[in-house]
Structure formats: C-alpha cells, structure tokens
C-alpha cells in the first residue's frame, strides 16, 4: 500500500522519516529540517560565533546530508550523521578563516612550551571567591563567553554532551575520536569552564 499522504510525520521516528525521504517525499525532507535545524544551527553558532555564517554553514550541512539521503544507513542515527557533518563544516570554516579562538590553554597550534606559555592567559582573578549565586541570565551569558574561549574540539564535545545529551560513545563515533580522547576533552573543557566562570564571577 502507498503511504498515506496525510501521514503525521511528526510522530514518526527518524528512520521512518528518512525512508519516506528516500522514496521522494518532499514533506519528509521538510520534517527532517524542522527537527534538526535548531540543534545543528546551535552547534555551529557556538563554534563560529557569527549568526550569518552559522546559517550558511548549517544550510550546507543540511544540503550535504539531504542530497545524499539515499546513502544513509539505518544502523546509525541520522542525528549523529548530521552532527558529524556540521562539526566538520564548522571546523573546516574555522581552519580556512584562521579565526583565532582564544584558548586559556594557549594556542592549539603552539609548537613548543614557550609558545604555549606566550599564547595562554590566566582567567582566574587573584581574589577569586566561591560565590555561586548568580542570576540565571548572567550565568548563561558567562557560560557562553567561557565556551567561546574553549578550543573548537572541546567546544563541540561539550555541546554534544550537555546540550544534545549524547553519551561519550556517541560523541566518539560522531566526531571520529577515540573514546578516551572524548573523555579527556570533556574533562579539560569542564575544568577550563570552571576556571573561566570563576573569573567571570569576580
């Protein structure tokens, strides 16, 4: 039987929507864009920190995935494929444009300990205190600034872990990284965020 035209796509799992897209249903493509436009845009936006560029890169991500939807293998999660492409697109952009993301660990391109030292900075204020109560809005802003200062690899791991709620294994598969590396990145990122937020609160 042909699938009904009035099928409620919003209640279908990703795999079924993809199947309909593979059969040429345009509304299935629209549904996939509707489901993932915000997560994909958010990931890229937090990576490149420019709304217009982020929209362009998110658009590229969707076009790459949807124009090759026939190659999708249902044994993997569609979202993992999308996040993988989005992360690659953002990293490529950052590399091409040589955007100098500020790392409190020093430049990721630093070749020696001296260069690391020269390009790093300490965000901890001398009189750091332990006050934890901040308005949610301010804390949100502070977190965004602290995330912006992370290395791109740390940033994508933190986003996938905390904003998208992915497991370490899924992040490793999505970003093509060893599991141990993902755990290390997230641990370091959290550590740097705590230091940076300590500085913000001063």
């Amino acid at each position: 039987m042909p699938e009904p035209r009035t099928l409620d796509l919003q209640n279908l799992p990703d795999a079924d929507v993809v199947l309909l897209a593979q059969r040429g249903r345009e509304d299935a493509f629209r549904e996939l864009v509707r489901r993932y436009e915000r997560p994909i845009f958010s990931l890229i936006y937090r990576m490149v920190r420019d709304r217009e560029t982020s929209e362009d890169l998110a658009q590229d991500t969707f076009i790459k995935v949807l124009n090759h939807i026939d190659r999708y293998s249902p044994e993997f999660r569609l979202s993992s494929w999308l996040f993988k492409i989005a992360n690659n697109v953002a990293i490529d952009y950052l590399r091409k444009r040589q955007i100098s993301t500020i790392s409190i660990d020093g430049s990721p391109h630093a070749a020696s300990a001296a260069e690391v030292e020269a390009t790093s900075f300490d965000v901890r204020a001398p009189q750091e205190n332990a006050l934890e109560e901040l308005e949610a809005r301010e804390l949100g802003g502070a977190i965004e600034r602290a995330i912006a200062a992370l290395r791109p690899e740390y940033r994508s791991c933190i986003m996938l872990r905390h904003v998208e709620g992915r497991s370490y294994e899924e992040i490793a598969a999505t970003l093509d990284l060893p599991l141990g590396t993902v755990k290390t990145y997230i641990h370091r990122a959290r550590h740097q965020l705590r230091e940076a937020l300590g500085g913000e609160r001063e």
Partner: peptide, 11 residues
C-alpha cells in the same frame, strides 16, 4: 548550567 543551555533558532 551547561545542561540548561538553550538551542538557538535560525532565521
């Protein structure tokens, strides 16, 4: 606080 970070909306 990280878990509560919102998604951004494109145009």
């Amino acid at each position: 606080a990280l878990d509560k970070m919102p998604h951004f909306t494109p145009s």
